[in-house]
Design a binder for these strands. Structure first.
Lengths: 191, 191
DNA sequence: GTCTATATCTAGATAGAC
DNA sequence: GTCTATCTAGATATAGAC
């Protein structure tokens, strides 16, 4: 064979990672297949050896991103007590705000997900429920757990929609302080 | 003249309103000029008698939407004490969640605004600061005012990204209860 | 599996008739 | 101001050579 056994899955993985980043930065609908492929050094025609359509790639991106983000946010039973606080600090950081390509999928592709097929939204719902369940236990408050998720996503959407760095930082900082005050388990610790 | 004096501005206003709704529902980049024009009974070519480019229409949409939403949310000195509470109730309603075409621009076009020109984001920043200033005075807490804005936008983005109506309502209700508890001036009143 | 070439369609924008 | 026709560019997707 002209290609090794693992070549296809390696290429697919590279395409998935690269496309996720590009879509989170510039939007999914507004980026063409040619651009996604040339980003990994291939031409447009080869795309269809990996995905039957661009839509199928979108589903794969959402699947992978939700998997990654929600596993990270939900943590596991061994995660320390300040797990939620660390998530909040990282999520509401200036770095996250100016680096959509390596960040959470919801603040950048949320609206495109809202317009997507039910299966896509079901995958998102599952991931959100996983995170909610974990944070509900860690914060001891089911309402606060949902509000915390909304706060993180909303603060990022708003922070990215303003022009000045000053205002952006102000929004993120205000959001962090508000959460520290209202949901004790989100407050920074020394560790 | 073949057209009345006010014809042009009436057409422009109709185009702006119609396009706002279509863009908030289906995204701006993913909707063509022809579709926007045929929605008001005209053909694509006539578009350029009103805007020099599609980009210019986007700027006009953001301008109009921020004007409208922020005036409504900020209120005025005559607005009642429960003004913020009413805003929260309406914003976090199921109706708003399932009706993006008549709702706030930020949860649906926020990411497209984040990728737009600085002038667009400056307009958004001005509107957000207007609302923040008003809510800062009404809630008595500058951090809470920013967090409230983020909470509203985020709850809508998240609620729209899930598939089941049950989860959507749960997210909105949790957000409302959390705000009532943590920012007293957002709590429902009898009036 | 990837390439080039191509088919088909739609996009944003312009030109000229009415 | 609006229409039809058209230009140019880009999109998704397919076909066949290597």
């Amino acid at each position: 064979m002209r290609y090794t056994k693992t070549h296809k899955e390696e290429t697919r993985a590279k395409l998935l990672d690269s496309s996720s980043a590009i879509a989170k930065k510039g939007g999914f609908a507004s980026t063409g297949v040619d651009a996604l492929m040339s980003a990994i050094g291939l031409t447009g025609g080869a795309f269809y050896s990996h995905f039957r359509s661009k839509q199928e790639l979108f589903e794969a991106i959402v699947e992978q991103e939700m998997q990654k983000s929600c596993d990270m946010l939900a943590g596991n039973p061994d995660s320390p007590d300040n797990h939620v606080a660390k998530c909040v600090r990282d999520y509401l950081s200036s770095f996250h705000a100016i680096s959509p390509e390596v960040g959470c999928i919801l603040p950048t592709l949320g609206p495109e997900i809202a317009r997507a097929d039910p299966e896509v939204r079901e995958r998102v719902e599952r991931g959100l429920k996983q995170t909610h369940q974990s944070w509900r236990e860690r914060t001891g408050d089911a309402d606060a757990a949902w509000a915390l998720i909304a706060q993180l996503v909303g603060a990022l959407v708003v922070a990215r929609a303003v022009e000045s760095e000053k205002t952006r930082k102000e929004i993120l900082a205000a959001s962090r302080r508000f959460l520290s005050k209202t949901i004790p388990s989100t407050a920074p610790t020394k560790a």
